[in-house]
């Protein structure tokens, strides 16, 4: 487009051209965020995975002294209906005897101490719900089935490297550094819990 007054207009035009071009470039660049986001977000857990993110368990079939294992988010969950003796043993343990003093309970704050009431079910001290993965290197401890070794403390025993857990799922002896984790869960009723 020929412009006879090119010298004059070039000066005026420079600022406006730069602004428009910069504005166009900036506006186009803003679009990159919303363009890239779906490409990244699609790798996040999808709706069907999220729907399986929580599971409801009926506790009524579990007799006192019995334990069941269920899967939640791909991990084994130990649910034990503890007998009176098991609860006593856990409650009377001194904190000083524990290698890991923290409760590791996702329903409580990080610094809650590992006393039995911080490990057992809220208002339901006979119920213990823990993620059944040894905190050493990830094996699944034994102790859920009748006849399994429960270790020296009556809880669980990990055969891989010899970690012993007590009746509150806390590490007592062996290489595991932390107590078995308590997952986030709530009691929907006395006989029903929802994990996750």
């Amino acid at each position: 487009m020929a412009n006879p007054n090119s010298t004059v207009d070039a000066v005026d035009d420079t600022d406006r051209r730069d602004f428009i071009t910069v504005a166009a470039g900036a506006f186009a660049a803003i679009g990159l965020g919303p363009l890239v986001w779906p490409m990244l977000d699609q790798m996040n857990p999808d709706a069907s995975a999220l729907a399986l993110g929580s599971v409801e368990i009926d506790l009524s079939p579990i007799a006192v002294g019995q334990a069941i294992t269920i899967m939640w988010r791909g991990k084994p969950i130990f649910i034990r209906n503890r007998a009176e003796g098991e609860i006593q043993a856990a409650e009377t343990t001194q904190i000083s005897a524990l290698p890991d003093r923290f409760a590791r309970n996702e329903n409580l704050s990080e610094d809650a101490p590992a006393v039995d009431r911080n490990r057992a079910g809220e208002g339901h001290e006979n119920w213990l719900v823990v993620i059944g993965i040894c905190t050493h290197l990830g094996c699944i401890p034994r102790g859920q089935r009748v006849g399994d070794s429960k270790g020296e403390f009556g809880g669980w025993f990990c055969p891989c490297h010899g970690s012993h857990y007590d009746t509150a799922g806390r590490i007592r002896k062996g290489p595991a550094p932390r107590n078995m984790e308590v997952p986030p869960y709530t009691f929907l009723s006395d006989t029903r819990i929802k994990i996750g």
């Binding site: 487009m1 035009d13 051209r17 428009i20 071009t21 504005a23 166009a24 506006f27």
Partner: peptide, 13 residues
């Protein structure tokens, strides 16, 4: 729209 105006300006320069 912005790119069109920018294009015309770049070309007229």
């Amino acid at each position: 729209g912005l790119l069109y105006v920018a294009k015309r300006r770049v070309w007229s320069r």
